[in-house]
Design a binder for these strands. Sequence first.
DNA 1: CTAACAACTGTCAACATTGACAGCATATAC
DNA 2: GTATATGCTGTCAATGTTGACAGTTGTTAG
Lengths: 236, 236
Amino acid sequence: MKAWQEIQLQALQTSDSEHQLFQAIAALGAELGFDYCAYGLRLALPLSNPKIVKVSNYPSAWQTQYQAKNYCAIDPTVKHALRSSQPILWTDGLFASTAAFWEEARSFGLRYGWAQSMRDVPGATGMLTLARSDEPLSKAELADKAFKMAWLTQTAHMALSRRLLPKLLPEADTKLSNREIAVLRWTADGKTAGEIADIMKITERTVNFHISNAAAKLNASNKTAAAVKAALLGFL
Amino acid sequence: MKAWQEIQLQALQTSDSEHQLFQAIAALGAELGFDYCAYGLRLALPLSNPKIVKVSNYPSAWQTQYQAKNYCAIDPTVKHALRSSQPILWTDGLFASTAAFWEEARSFGLRYGWAQSMRDVPGATGMLTLARSDEPLSKAELADKAFKMAWLTQTAHMALSRRLLPKLLPEADTKLSNREIAVLRWTADGKTAGEIADIMKITERTVNFHISNAAAKLNASNKTAAAVKAALLGFL
DNA sequence: CTAACAACTGTCAACATTGACAGCATATAC
DNA sequence: GTATATGCTGTCAATGTTGACAGTTGTTAG
């Protein structure tokens, strides 16, 4: 099983398309005994309409359905993943309030599953799901594989989010100057331009100058949006 | 090793003091072959002066030194942890620019170490360090233990941050109403009160009313601070 | 029933922000 | 030497925010 890790790690580091990367991760999932593997990445931004990308080897009819009916919005595993990094098992209890969705998933062979989420940059949550049709997931199997699944979640998220993030959110790649960062930090803590001017011993005019430069770089329409974006992207 | 997991998980779930929790985690670290274990939690808030808590079984003289000289600010492992969840090994290269710090740590027996970080709520980063005095960390050992260490990082962070967070940041426990959340979301995206009023078909006055209520709950001095805090605490 | 809460609305004055104009100093990279 | 980036400063008018006042309506839990 050491070979598993070594060989696949190479694939993760060398492959440059998301598709190849995902294949490598799905292969690791398969070795753990899961036919299906899905990775979803949700960026917090824009807050009023967060961006989501999904990659999976689910039956394509189910992928289509899931997308069309916007199941993302009701999927209890997604809901859980956004709140906690605790792994979660597909159980009847979990899907109690979304029976139709659960039935439909099962009809596509998605019966026994496990999922875990994780974050890197503050505003990006990744979720890895491993599933299969046949064998229920016993407690013993879970205990046995928990370590590897935790590792796989981390590895998958780090590898995939690194490629997907700049694509989805070009602002994630911009660089703020030191002054811009300092001014945004104080702004994010609720200081007015006047107060920041006193703190930093510069003119109020200069404070506003830095703020508006930062906002331009971040594609933010005002200083509130700039502060939130910078904070969620980990610039502060 | 299954016993390891089961027995200790119980400890993690039942013990209610951070101290007990940390003991359980340190015990798991010891079983992995590390004499020393340290957990640090950094809240992004307040942004201009982030809060940090440390728990460790390091020699107490070193803990005192580290605190007194504010080594947190220069420690390269901390710097790495804040940017990436990738595990990191203590190497000469890593400490190249902080030789004095590295020497001092080694003089306390902290010679071979490994660290990994992780986030849950967007604004909280936890870092687990495992270290020892004697045996260098070989590649083979790392490959062998990578899974368990990844799992331990996750487990430690989830258990410890859950207790530490509300203590450090009481706002993390408040509840915002649906309207407050909706208004803050649009605010965080850079909409003005007037625009939000149009979007939500309510008066500008009402928008400002919700914003100021939310700001009061979050202990924020204006809407920018409220939006940032709410975003970093995962309320949006 | 009643208390508590969420949601909603009004006015007005002080204060803060944004955007558009224009310019200078310093350091680093080619 | 020159381009580029960063940091700094100025003015002014339009627009937005905040705080302090005071009140209505509807829902929910005890």
